[in-house]
Design a protein around this nucleic acid. Structure first.
Lengths: 363, 363
DNA sequence: CAGCGGGGTTGACACGTTTTAATCCGATGA
DNA sequence: TCATCGGATTAAAACGTGTCAACCCCGCTG
């Protein structure tokens, strides 16, 4: 090992096994009081340059690392925020997470990333862990629509910003994308392309994302003077590719003819559907047109490039985090905001009728 | 403030805004001493059933949530482990993370998920945060090969298990997949299919994964009595699809003829390469065969289903976590282990020569 | 009946940091 | 020369929990 010692030869053990090195040890080493060390760490401007230099040197010499627990205990809250998403394996949420991490680390906060797996019970359990950790605030994509878990946290004095979840309530911040508009966009596009019978593949109907996109789809039908009976719905238990495969199998095995176009509540679902359709020899988009939602990176590279509805994913994470930190940092004057983005249609091959030139995007 | 007293009826504010409810308030409410409440929380068997019931009731009535910082401070370590991966947007790592989370939550540990983005500096900064949080242990996929960051942590008494990174050193645990074998598998397959000129698209050469897979590729060449000059290497700065696209563009624009087969260090890279090749009118696998690495879910659904090298991803996370927790929990007797899995070739259309029947997998 | 043992409970201290009020010291102005 | 002032530093008191030795009570044994 590299015996890297300070000035004295062979004397000081550099932060190794022995007694933990805390603020006290640093203070002793630098010949000041613990309070001064604390000041160097937290309000460097209050301590004379010479003293500060001495303390800083002691810190590196001893390899001191501040004890976050003590800090948190004393302050009543940590400099950590929690991020709870529905599904970490969904690129949509990892993109959001990137936005969150970027802003948080710019502002000196750490992020505890957590996933509810679309289970209310896991959401509750993981939120409890966050509460125990005394996180400064929480970004939450709730699985249920009631918001009970969020309320409980807020009652405990933990700021919560709803992520990818709009709210009419004025007493909380939320950042979301208009999923009703998105669903309408998707289905209107399918209808414009000439589809007369439709399928809707969706996850748990309890998920707000699913419910809203469905409402949008229905609204598009109404606008086209079609009954909701032209929409065949298949609901599966999750929103991943495996579930999408199951949905497609169900459609195929039902005996009924396939709809002319299928709207999936999610790109992951759509990818799963696409795969099973192709394996079954169904041509996309000739036999069945297909559109997903989220426009994850892989959609453009799919067997048949997938049409989708794009959301400002990264921005979603950034804005939400900025709102949360604003609510945390500013002592009094914080006005709750409900931010709503608009989604954007991305047409690719999977839903492009033979003679259709007015697609909006091809990059 | 809410004068929240114990037995009086209608007086108790249920954990709302006012004074934080701690172990003391619970004790008062239940008519016991704080020590007993602590015992109920940590060694329930030591407290009489009746008392325990009373305390537990008080806990729910007051909505008590244990203060993790105080707990950690007192105990010297938290019940949290850190997981640091190279890239959260890579499905390979989210799969690993799932394995980690599953084991950790089974054992009552929480996971702080963190990503270095393949940057040594971010790795160091984030590890420091973990150290401040006094995590019980760390699962680390190091970006550099030196292991200096890991050593520093271990010197501070934090157990570290290397994840997706083998080590010859006997003083630490590691869990990995044999990437040299994997690289050899991939390139041998390409050669068997008749390719005589090869391309290798790789990320930063400093990444062990890249270096090892490259070594495997070279070994396969040697075994086939070919010089390393038949291997054209393209190295890009990251291991995602965008970087893959850049690599493909570089290959196309170089003027030189394309290699007959391309091995990508990563499925994400491969998907990027595939996309650009197809856009340029290059037929896969007819003109160029392609194989990736990791066998992420999307590879099977790609425009041309992607051959790949499969790793036991979820298991990787599980085993690593079990080793880490064993090292944390057991006081003395823990024998360090270096676990090495073997990868598996998955042949799909992207590398299937016209008349080739002995593919190993098609599900 | 005294002594004993043991399960159940208590009280008090320690963990490492932040913060507040108090102290110290050198310099400035009268 | 002395009082004053202000910046730099310090001592001490929290924060909420875990632990450990001490203590109490009760039933049992001799």
């Amino acid at each position: 090992m590299s015996t890297d010692d300070t000035g004295r030869p062979g004397a000081s053990t550099p932060a190794a096994g022995g007694g933990t090195v805390g603020i006290k040890q640093v203070a002793a080493h630098a010949g000041v009081s613990p309070g001064t060390v604390s000041n160097v760490l937290n309000r460097p401007e209050r301590v004379a340059a010479a003293t500060r230099a001495r303390v800083e040197q002691a810190i590196v010499e001893l390899g001191f690392v501040r004890n976050g627990s003590a800090s948190t205990l004393r302050a009543g809250h940590s400099s950590t925020i929690g991020l709870m998403v529905l599904d970490l394996a969904n690129p949509f949420f990892t993109d959001v997470a990137r936005g969150v991490e970027d802003v948080a680390s710019e502002r000196g906060y750490a992020v505890i990333l957590s996933s509810s797996g679309e289970s209310d019970e896991r959401e509750q359990r993981n939120l409890r862990v966050l509460a125990e950790q005394r996180v400064r605030g929480v970004l939450l994509t709730p699985v249920g629509d009631e918001g009970g878990n969020a309320d409980r946290l807020r009652d405990r004095g933990v700021p919560v910003v709803l992520l990818d979840h709009p709210t009419p309530r004025a007493n909380q911040c939320s950042v979301a994308v208009d999923d009703v508009a998105g669903g309408e966009l998707a289905v209107t596009h399918l209808l414009d392309d000439g589809a007369r019978t439709l399928g809707f593949v969706t996850g748990p109907p309890g998920l707000r994302q699913c419910a809203d996109r469905r409402r949008g789809a229905l609204r598009a039908l109404r606008a086209a003077c079609l009954g909701r009976d032209v929409l065949r719905e298949v609901s599966v238990g999750a929103m991943n590719a495996r579930a999408g495969q199951e949905a497609a199998r169900r459609l195929l095995e039902s005996g009924a003819p396939l709809p002319e176009a299928i709207f999936c509540a999610n790109d992951l679902l759509a990818l799963g559907v696409l795969r099973v359709l192709l394996q079954a020899g169904v041509k996309v988009p000739t036999d069945v047109a297909l559109i997903g939602y989220d426009d994850i990176e892989f959609s453009a590279a799919a067997a048949v490039p997938l049409s989708s509805v794009r959301q400002p994913t990264y921005q979603l994470g950034r804005i939400a985090t900025e709102l949360l930190l604003e609510e945390c940092d500013e002592s009094g004057g914080h006005a709750h905001q409900q931010v709503m983005f608009q989604p954007e249609l991305v047409v690719r091959e999977s839903s492009r009728a033979a003679a259709d030139d007015r697609e909006s995007n091809s990059a």
